[in-house]
Simulated scan of single mutants.
Amino acid sequence: MSLNIAASPDTRDRLNAYIKLGKLGFYDYYLSAFIVWAALPGSQLWDGTTFAVLLLYIAGYVGVVAATVALDDVTGIRDGSDAHNYSPETGALRDLTRKPLLSGALTVRQAELFGWGAMVWGAILWSMVFVIAPETSLWVGLLMAAVLISNVQYSYGMKISYNFGQELILVTPGLAILVPYVLLTGEATGLVILETVLFGLWSLLVSIYSNMNDVEGDRLAGRRNLATLTSPSAYRKIIVGAHLLELIAVAVAIGVGAVPLWFVALMVPLWVMRVSQARAGVGQGNLLQARMLGIKLHRWGVPALLLANVLALHV
């Protein structure tokens, strides 16, 4: 007699729904670990503690992000904003199956339990990181706690994203570079600070296009962010300003001697594509196309920063 231990179709479907609920296929933020590793002094590159800190931090961050997006979906289904924003007209670029609460694959109660479980997972692993890290200080611990709490409260509980704080939370992925680096080295170099800023801006340059696309549904739900509180023309100017911040950050870093002038050469290919992103979103109104370009640029920016770290520190 053979024993069939393969998962049933229902189990596989449920697991797939939870994967989509937690956006576990969206790995962009977790690529920060490679940037941090390449920025470390040579003596720490192959140290066991380094790998333990980075692995635990990223594994915990997966929980933080999963909790954030799952509870965001809970709020989105309750206030009707997701049903409005994921209308059939946008199906070509926004797959309805990415929202298992809308598709009926999961219940609100299941999503809530998943979200709170993911938060506990993140809190436990980040606590372990703080215990084993070679360099710890109170401000880093408080910063980690603030990221955890504010992200989970993004659209749930305090609903920070509904009360003027959305854009502030959207740049916190950049801290996935700063925090583990400081935990490992006890300092923050100019290069790491610049990369923290860029990584956060790249995240924002995805989300601001989503916000503009979702503005009608967000207004109906009572969300107060830059998109809902400004006119379309004013928000387009804000988007252009966000694009310019990337250039300004690099210029300031070069001006204060934080990075060498050759850093610009690594950024130029990305900036050329940024023009295409801005043209698609701001100029032509193809907001979801601009969002997809932003995701690609976020991913393409990672090898650029890796190369910058190698050239600056290990060549």
Rank of each mutant, 00 (worst) to 15 (best):
F164E: 15
T189I: 02
P232S: 00
K237Y: 12
L168D: 10
G186W: 06
K237H: 11
L175E: 00
G122I: 06
V182E: 13
T196S: 12
G122K: 05
Y209T: 06
L184R: 04
L175V: 03
L226E: 09
S210C: 09
L143E: 09
L183P: 00
P173I: 04
A146Y: 14
A123G: 04
Y235Q: 10
V171G: 05
V152M: 06
N213Y: 09
A146P: 02
A111C: 00
N211H: 14
I132N: 07
A111K: 01
A145S: 02
L142I: 14
G200Y: 07
D214N: 01
A133F: 03
P134C: 14
L178S: 15
L194P: 00
I193L: 11
S155G: 08
Q166W: 06
M158C: 07
L191G: 00
Y162T: 09
L170W: 10
L220K: 13
L138A: 14
V147N: 10
Y162D: 07
L205F: 04
P232D: 03
L125K: 03
S231Y: 08
A234W: 05
L175M: 11
L143Q: 10
N211I: 07
E135K: 15
T228D: 08
G141I: 10
N213M: 02
M158H: 12
A234L: 04
L175N: 00
T185V: 11
I193G: 01
E167T: 06
I177H: 02
A123F: 04
I239P: 04
S231K: 13
I193N: 06
L178Y: 09
G115Q: 01
L194W: 00
F130H: 03
Y209I: 03
M212S: 13
A234H: 08
G157C: 08
Q153Y: 09
A133T: 01
P180L: 02
M212F: 08
V171M: 09
K159C: 07
S161H: 11
S231M: 08
P232T: 00
L175G: 01
V147G: 11
E216K: 12
V171E: 01
V140P: 02
L170F: 13
A146E: 07
V120A: 15
L143D: 09
Y209W: 10
Q166A: 15
G222M: 13
M119T: 06
R219Q: 15
T185P: 10
G174E: 07
E195A: 03
I239N: 03
V197D: 00
Y154T: 10
A188Y: 04
T136A: 14
S150A: 15
T172D: 03
G122T: 08
M119W: 13
I124W: 01
E167G: 02
V152C: 07
G217S: 05
Y209V: 04
L204I: 13
D214H: 04
T230P: 01
A133R: 02
S155N: 14
A221Y: 11
G174Q: 06
N225I: 09
T228G: 06
I239E: 12
L142C: 12
I239D: 05
S161D: 12
K159V: 14
L168P: 01
K237I: 14
T189C: 03
R236M: 04
S150I: 12
N213L: 05
L194M: 00
L191D: 08
L220A: 15
